[in-house]
Design a binder for these strands. Structure first.
Lengths: 116, 116
DNA sequence: CGCTTGTACAACCATAAGGTTGTAGATTAG
DNA sequence: CTAATCTACAACCTTATGGTTGTACAAGCG
């Protein structure tokens, strides 16, 4: 099992920032489903090629997709490992909440015991 | 079981946008762990009260926290349901990728069969 | 070779984000 | 009642974001 380094705050910032745009989420979905060139992606949206190119760049800087040269094209593919990392972060928040509930439950149990 | 409405694109935008800042993620963690007033939260960061207040407002608009009036204080508490929703979205991306792999595996199996 | 296609990137613009200070209203403490 | 505390919000500033157009260059096509 590969132990991964903790993501820095700014890396996490970039990941969630990249996910905070519907076009980028759609590009991520497509590129997880199958590789597509930047121009193929661009054809799918009602905006300039350059705009789509920028969105891909934001995803790339966040590590959510990577590009591979195929002739003059750049094949974009999603990086499931990064998505998993983001999901794991949210899992931790849920754990924090669950631990809180456990503490509260324990307190309540103590109170009931004390009432004897 | 409560069936939940799909989150709109802009709701998802707000959720991930809210998560894309280290201070806000920390506020979310704290408020999932235990309720805290805005001023208690503000004391924890090296920025003005108003700045922290704005961060709380961003989290609130995203539905990640809610506020409850307690005298003159506003108790901020995290909303685990929303965190779960965000996590579920990322799960879907991972599923998309897994389905792709399954398709590729199926193709490979066909090829091997064809070679007989 | 010359033309088309695919990409990269700079320059620019409008708006949003993240911070500040200042003012004002509610609530509690003395 | 008066003073202190907690919150809300407006106004302002700087920088980032998301879009545009235009230019440049590499790779395929005929």
């Amino acid at each position: 099992m590969v132990v991964q380094a903790e993501l820095s705050d700014s890396e996490v910032d970039r990941i969630f920032r990249a996910l905070a745009d519907a076009t980028r989420r759609d590009i991520l979905r497509r590129s997880l489903d199958s590789e597509a060139s930047v121009s193929q992606l661009a054809a799918a949206y009602d905006m300039s090629f350059a705009a789509v190119q920028k969105h891909v760049a934001v995803l790339e800087r966040a590590g959510l997709v990577s590009k591979r040269a195929v002739g003059r094209q750049r094949a974009v593919r999603g990086n499931p490992e990064r998505v998993e990392r983001a999901r794991a972060l949210l899992d931790r928040y849920e754990q924090i909440w669950r631990r809180r509930i456990e503490r509260l439950d324990a307190l309540l149990a103590d109170d009931l015991t004390a009432e004897h």
